[in-house]
Computed example of a mutant assay.
Amino acid sequence: MSMQLYGSTISPFVRKVAVFAEEKGIALDLIPTAPGDASPAFRAISPFGQIPALVDGDFSLADSSAIVTYLEAKYPEPALIPAEAQARGRTIWFDELADTIVFGAGRAMLFNRVVGPLFRGGVGDAAVADAAERDQWPGILAYLDAQVGGRDFLVGDTLTLADIAVASAFASTLHACAPVDAAVYPDLARYLAAILARPAFATRVAGERAFIERARARVVK
C-alpha cells in the first residue's frame, strides 16, 4: 500500500514532498486537503492542521522538511540529501531559505493575488503583495542568481533537496508574479527553467496553473 500525502500542490511545501518522492521513485497518494482542516481524522495526523502531512502505515508526520528527512532515511537511493558535511549543510540551508525567505515573500503575493481573491471569497490585500514584490523579491532573486552562477544545481553536480525546495517555492510564487527576468537574472532564469521542466515538476505546475485559470474565469464572469 502506498503512502498518503495530505495537502494541495499549490502549496510549495506539499509540492516539495511530492516532487522529492517522485524523484526517488516513491509512490504517494495525494489526498486533497486544505491547510487548517479541523476534521478529527486530519488533526490526528497533523495536530496543528499543517499541510503536508504524511501517513505511512501506522506512522504519520507533518511538516515538509521532517517528511523529506524521513523519506531520505527510509529510501536512501538516489540520495537527495548529501552525506558529506558541507554539502549537507548547504542543502539544508537552501531548504530553509526556500521555506522561510523565498516563500516568505512569495506567500504575500500568492495569498493576496491568488488564494484570497479566487478561493477565499475575495479576501486579499494588493498593497501587501505589491510591497513584497517591490521590496523583498529583487534581493532574493539577486542572491540566488549569484548562488547558481553557471551551475546546473545549487549543491554539487546532481539534483538535491536544495533544488527541489527552491524551485517549489518559486513555482508557487510564480503563480502570482511576473516571470524571472532573464535579462537581469540570467543564471537564475536558466536554472529555474531547467528544474521546473523536470517531469516531477512540470505536470504538477501545469495542472495548478489550469486550476487557477479556471477559478479566475469563474470569478470574472
Rank of each mutant, 00 (worst) to 15 (best):
V19K: 05
D63M: 14
S2P: 15
A142V: 10
F119A: 04
L5E: 08
F13P: 00
R113K: 12
Q50H: 15
E23S: 08
L71S: 02
A62V: 10
G25L: 05
R216F: 14
P32D: 04
A165H: 01
A53R: 03
P32V: 11
G122I: 09
G57H: 14
G116P: 08
A18R: 11
V220T: 14
A162W: 00
Q147W: 12
G49N: 12
A142H: 11
D63P: 12
L97E: 04
R214I: 05
A34K: 10
A126K: 09
F119S: 02
A66V: 14
Y6F: 15
A21T: 06
C177Y: 12
P47Y: 15
G116N: 09
L5S: 04
L30W: 04
A108L: 14
I67T: 01
A108D: 11
S11R: 01
E133H: 10
I45S: 00
S64E: 01
D157A: 13
G116K: 09
W137K: 04
A131P: 00
L196W: 00
V155L: 06
F201V: 03
T173N: 03
R107V: 07
E133Y: 11
S39N: 08
V55E: 11
V115L: 15
T9P: 07
F153L: 05
K74S: 08
P117Q: 10
A105Y: 07
L97P: 00
A41F: 12
F59R: 09
Q136M: 12
L30Y: 05
T100M: 02
T91I: 12
H175E: 14
A79G: 09
I164K: 00
A66I: 11
S39L: 13
G89W: 15
Y70G: 03
P179R: 03
V102A: 07
D152L: 03
D187N: 14
M109T: 06
Y70H: 15
Y6W: 15
S39H: 09
A44V: 09
A197N: 08
D145R: 04
G156Y: 12
E96S: 05
A206N: 01
G106V: 01
T160H: 10
G150A: 10
T33W: 13
L196H: 03
D29K: 15
M3P: 09
L118E: 08
E84Y: 15
V184H: 04
T33E: 06
V68E: 01
L159I: 14
P179M: 07
M109A: 15
A83I: 04
